[in-house]
Design a binder for these strands. Structure first.
Length: 474
RNA sequence: GGUCCCAUCGUCUAACGGUUAGGACACCGGGUUUUCAUCCCGGCAAUAGGAGUUCGAUUCUCCUUGGGAUCACCA
């Protein structure tokens, strides 16, 4: 039988890393078995429905390369199907119209709570209920029994009849509940592996009871532990500030990095490998090696993974990816120039949205007061010992020396190393001074490359400008 | 409260019942003869507690503690 998995989000907002990981694992299971992956939108709650949500979910998965083979299906478009199965249930005496009001329900629940007893609706089943017609809610008539089942991740479970109860299958608005619809859709869709997060585990017995009533065979189940928020120990949720997965796209994270990071959040292959390509994941992923406990979402680690992927990206590909991230004043710059700049910062950039702060001085003159401040209050210990007049001398000498250079990388190196000997000064001093003059930044990419990319004209002009700045203040 | 799930460095995690409890992120230190970064080397740092089974327990069992989920006409 062909393996078929699904991801079934409800369109109530954006997708966050927790949801994405569930989708990823389901997708990996399908791809590994050369099976199919289905996207199903569980839009049966009209109150919580968010219009743009479905498109957002599709876009998110698409960005990550998690492409559905089928779907997106919408449950809201399959109402007749659920009606049909509901009738089947009624015919078999396994569902009844429920006319209990909300107030009555509250009262029953409160009474159970006061008595410190669990609330079970089946203890309050009406003796006889009216024939079910649309506009009424329909409740499943459970037949409590013990169950034993296997979970591909968590192992074997047993449950007693105390955890089985009657529950609503069709709401009074005519829409099915999750509890009902997902079972029918999975069955009709030929889903072989139901992979979902932990919050559904306590509901398993009642699901199983419904499978039985519907005469549907159990699929395989796989329960994934939670992804937890970084701050607390609670499951990641939008309420607690979980980020939209597309925020990572906007920040210049690479989909491959997210995928690798998310895959290893709760799973590993037993080796010491830390970074995985998608192909490796498809080959190596194994539900049996998914951990049982929740995993905190650690942005630091994601940052590291992303930096790794960024460094591995070929130059031409990186240029393409970086295009939307350049600072505004880079617009008029030539592609060749930007590529050269990018090459210089590639090893230090963690996410592409850092590009402006890392590269701004390549596109605009550094700020005078920043330069002045860096010279007068340097963080560098060696620089700190120098008088302004000494700095002026260093800068002037650099100008003279570089005026003769053809500004090739090797010549810049030769000239400046030569100057080091001439002035009998330390690289830590001379090069730091040049760096500040030219970049107005306390750190920058390697100096010779920076000068080379900036070019002779600009480099010399900035050296001169910085020197004059110091002279007027000296 | 009932039911259920979980428990190894700060974090992600590894360890056929036998290891100096391993790796990675973060942090700290050193090196790669300019800074930062990369890369390399090194350091810090963990089996929640208690019983039991066993020659031997991170690993199996039970209890305690702690954390979490769930008990909706939400999914």
């Amino acid at each position: 039988m062909m393996v078929k998995t699904r991801f079934a989000p409800s369109p109530t907002g954006f997708l966050h890393v927790g949801g994405v990981r569930t989708a990823l694992f389901a997708w990996l299971v399908a791809k590994q078995a050369h099976g199919q992956f289905v996207l199903r939108v569980e839009d049966t709650d009209r109150n919580r429905h968010v219009e743009e949500s479905e498109q957002h979910i599709v876009n998110s998965l698409d960005w990550l390369g998690i492409k559905p083979d089928e779907g997106p299906f919408r449950q809201s478009e399959r109402l007749e199907i659920y009606q049909l199965w509901a009738q089947k249930l009624i015919k078999n005496g396994r569902a009844y119209a429920d006319t209990t009001t909300e107030a009555e329900l509250d009262k029953l629940r409160q009474a159970a709570k006061d008595a410190k007893k669990p609330f079970l609706f089946r203890h309050h089943r009406p003796e006889k209920s009216p024939a079910w017609v649309p506009g009424m809610s329909l409740r499943f008539k459970s037949e409590p029994k013990a169950y034993t089942w296997h979970d591909e991740v968590m192992g074997d479970f047993t449950s007693g009849q105390e955890s089985i109860d009657d529950f609503i299958v069709i709401k009074s608005d005519g829409f099915p509940t999750y509890n009902f619809a997902h079972i029918i859709d999975d069955h009709l869709g030929g889903i072989t592996h139901v992979i979902r997060s932990q919050e559904f585990l306590p509901s398993m017995p009642k699901f199983l009871n419904l499978y039985d009533a519907l005469k549907i065979n159990f699929p395989k189940f796989a329960t994934l532990p939670y992804v937890l928020g970084a701050d607390g120990h609670k499951k990641l949720s939008k309420r607690d500030g979980a980020k939209d997965i597309l925020d990572y796209k906007r920040q210049g994270y690479l989909p491959g990095a997210l995928v690798s990071f998310l895959a290893t959040l709760g799973w590993n292959d037993g080796t010491e490998q830390e970074i995985f390509s998608v192909d490796e994941l498809i080959e190596k992923f194994d539900l049996k090696r998914v951990g049982h406990s929740g995993a905190k979402f650690d942005e630091q680690r994601l940052l590291w993974v992303n930096g790794h992927f960024l460094r591995e990206t070929p130059a031409n590909k990186l240029s393409e990816l970086a295009e939307p991230f350049w600072p505004a004043n880079a617009k008029s710059s030539e592609a060749l120039y930007k590529t050269a700049v990018l090459e210089l910062v590639q090893e230090r950039i963690k996410y592409l949205a850092e590009l402006p702060e890392l590269t701004s001085f390549f596109f605009e003159e550094p700020n005078d007061s920043t330069i002045y401040q860096l010279f007068t209050q340097p963080s560098d210990k060696q620089l700190k010992k120098l008088q302004l007049s000494e700095l002026v001398t260093l800068l002037r000498a650099s100008e003279t020396e570089l005026a003769d250079s053809d500004f090739s990388l090797s010549d810049i190196e030769t000239k400046l190393n030569g100057l080091l000997d001439k002035l009998a000064t330390k690289p830590g001093i001379l090069f730091a001074a040049i760096r500040i003059a030219v970049s107005g930044a306390k750190s920058s990419p390697q100096l010779f490359g920076t000068l080379n990319v900036l070019g002779k004209e600009i480099s010399l002009a900035r050296l001169k400008h910085a020197r004059e700045l110091l002279e007027t203040k000296a």
